[in-house]
Amino acid sequence: MTYQQNKEILDDYHLKQHITKDYDNCPEPPVSKDKTWEMIRKEIQKDAKPKKKLLPTRLMSIAAVAVITIIGGLFLQVNDSQAFGWITKYFITSNDEITQIGSSIKEPGDSGGLPSPDQLEEIAVVTKTDDMELAHAQQETNFHILVPKDVPDGYTLGFVTVYYENDMPSTKVILNYRNNEKTFTIEQIYVEHEVASSMVVDNDDTKVQNVELFTGQGTFISFKDNTTMLMWSQMNSQLTLDSSLSLEKAKMIANSME
């Protein structure tokens, strides 16, 4: 090859020509466009699934959270309560190191016991979330959003986070409250048929106690970093108050939910 030829081949114009021809002469992909999209869609849905991730400081103390599963093992305590026809169950099983906290909500008339694993579905495949005002959130959702009548002084509702599944509003919302310094959230998961959930906490870092609420049994968890979580069921919803509030204030909020 001559110097001149070489120079011409590799000037920008010719190089672009050669590369463009090659780029355009690309074989068909081995998998169709639609099938590829399906594979991508499955992956991005996995990515979008809500991971009930607690505050970083709690990560070490919570071994596993919010898995829809059946809790086997020894129930140290089982409490049933009934509110507006819906049956809720709380159970706590503990050994030296960890405590498992389970709950279930089901329609009256169902046979006793918790649902079998085969029947269980994950709560939601969330594809997006939107923050909005309460009135708008209520319009978006197909269930009544429970709101506390009483909140500690200084706290106001900032916004409501609505979760969507495949662009349709899901059965989960979070009320976000704040004052000048702190925040707390109330997560509500509306249960259409039945649901069970469990979480595992490390006994070294957490204190778990049962509490009596107007609507029945609840579970109050105190973490080492002075944050707390109160979980309970009301009507056909599972509720979680995530805060740094004391038991008394948390109970005040829970007992005023309407």
Binding site: R41, I44, Q45, D47, A48, K49, P50, K51, K52, K53, L54, L55, V126, T127, K128, T129, T161, Y163, N166, D167, I174, N176, R178, K182, T183, F184, T185, E187, T227, S244
Partner: peptide, 15 residues
Amino acid sequence: MLKKRSKKHAVSESE
């Protein structure tokens, strides 16, 4: 303290 429970995306799945 306020933590979102799931990652936000700038576009929906259909977009």
